[in-house]
Simulated assay, not measured.
Amino acid sequence: MNDMILELAKKIKSMYPQKDFIPLHEPKFKGNEQKYIADCIETGWVSSVGKYVDQFERMLAEFTGVKRAVAVVNGTAALHIALKIVGIQPNDEVLIPSLTFVATGNAVVYCGAVPHFIDVSTETLGIDPFKLDDYLRDVAVINGNVCINKQTGRIIRAVVPMHTFGHPVDIDVLFDVCERWNLIMVEDAAESLGSYYKGIHTGNFGKASALSFNGNKIITTGGGGAVLTNDEKLADYAKHLTTTAKRPHRWKYEHDQIGYNYRMPNINAALGCAQLEYIDDLIEKKRRLVQRYEQLIAGCQGVRLFKEPRFARSNYWLQTLIFDENICDINQVLETFNNQKVMSRPIWTPLHLLRPFQNSPKADLQVTEKLQYQIVNIPSSPYLGDDIDG
């Protein structure tokens, strides 16, 4: 097994011999980025108001198929606001996967709510809706059209599916669970720009959803995020809250509630506009990269490449290897790959194991606790798929 891991690392390193070190994911700039940013500088419109913010929001809405997009400073802020506008209240419980980036849990806590951790599916790496439904039958009851946790007495208000590494969860089944238990769905689509569930772009299913444009995402605005929704009133509310809840006026500073200084600067939106102009090409290269990795690991025992679920078309944001349980030590894999200057990383530490969340309610998390020792993300930059025939 050790020889196989070393050989696999060397094969990946040989994919791009021009580079001494292959990072996990880096952005690609090949369009109008410099032109649009220079326009911001030359005109002085570099802050949170400007034509590129409006244009970026329109382009996002058109690309994803939602009615409205509201650009914000990062994906965590986007999820925080998405939860706020759908009515998450202090002391509510919000069902989230434990196998997710810490921002999912943090955004719940920002609302004064309580993360309630649930398990994931091996088919999607996201929420397992069947297991969730069984779990709710044990711990919850509908009382006055509200889902109540029988153990804590708190309202279970919402569920937040996270589309792990760009792979959509089984939305239809999860939506049925939400209807049965009167739960609001808010999608954490931070990683899934360009991913589709049964032909519909992720972010269209939740009452509100969140995107991220961090430097390692499909497209980047440097730092940034967006709230997506098909509800015009919620979109207006999101825009109001993220602009310090300031009432429109030519000169007065009137704020009608506690708001947030979350608006995306124009100069960042300019970068995003340029990136969106060729996002289809970026995604196609990442999908071609899957073919390349399949060829590389062919014949390797005890490891497989994670593939998109049968009902989805994924952006393949991060390429993912899953090692057979008890075959090898993940830390040994990570050390070997990184020693070969092939950047790789494990999946996030499950949130229920982190100190801030150790007292949070949780379901049986057997799959989550196994997967943390099986998953390794490997280099996923679009240029690695450049020379694949499509």
Rank of each mutant, 00 (worst) to 15 (best):
H352F: 11
A274V: 02
L174M: 11
V367H: 08
I327C: 13
C178L: 10
V46N: 00
G112M: 09
A107N: 07
L174G: 04
Y16K: 13
N266S: 15
R180C: 09
E254W: 09
K35W: 07
L305E: 05
D176A: 15
L228M: 02
L79G: 04
E62H: 00
V139T: 08
K362I: 04
N261Y: 11
L211K: 04
A226P: 00
I378D: 04
E335R: 15
L305F: 10
Y253P: 07
Q275H: 06
A269R: 00
L321T: 05
C111E: 15
V120N: 08
D236M: 13
S192I: 02
W348L: 09
F130A: 13
Q18P: 06
V72K: 03
M4C: 06
T349W: 01
M264F: 00
D54Y: 10
K10A: 10
G390Q: 09
G224H: 02
G225C: 07
Y262Q: 01
W45Q: 14
R313V: 08
M1Q: 09
C147M: 07
D128E: 13
Q372C: 15
N377F: 14
K10I: 11
L174Q: 06
G144D: 06
S98I: 00
C147V: 03
F56Y: 15
Y373C: 05
N326Q: 11
H249I: 02
Q374D: 11
I41D: 06
T164F: 15
D364H: 08
G299I: 09
L305H: 07
S360P: 04
R58Q: 14
G126E: 03
H240W: 11
M59N: 14
V376A: 15
L353C: 07
S47R: 09
N214I: 03
Y260T: 01
R137D: 15
P356T: 02
P248I: 05
N338L: 02
Q291I: 10
I347A: 12
T164C: 09
A78K: 02
W317G: 06
P17S: 12
G126A: 13
K51Y: 10
P17W: 12
K233Y: 12
K233P: 03
H163N: 04
I85G: 00
H163M: 03
F357S: 05
G302R: 01
C147Y: 04
F63G: 02
N268E: 07
L276V: 03
V70M: 01
N74D: 12
P129T: 09
Y260I: 02
A312T: 01
E232N: 09
V53M: 02
D364S: 13
P356N: 07
D172S: 15
S14G: 12
Y278V: 00
E294I: 10
K207N: 07
V108S: 02
I347Q: 06
E254H: 12
D3T: 11
R288N: 14
L321C: 08
D188F: 05
E42M: 12
I327S: 13
E335S: 14
L234N: 03
V102E: 14
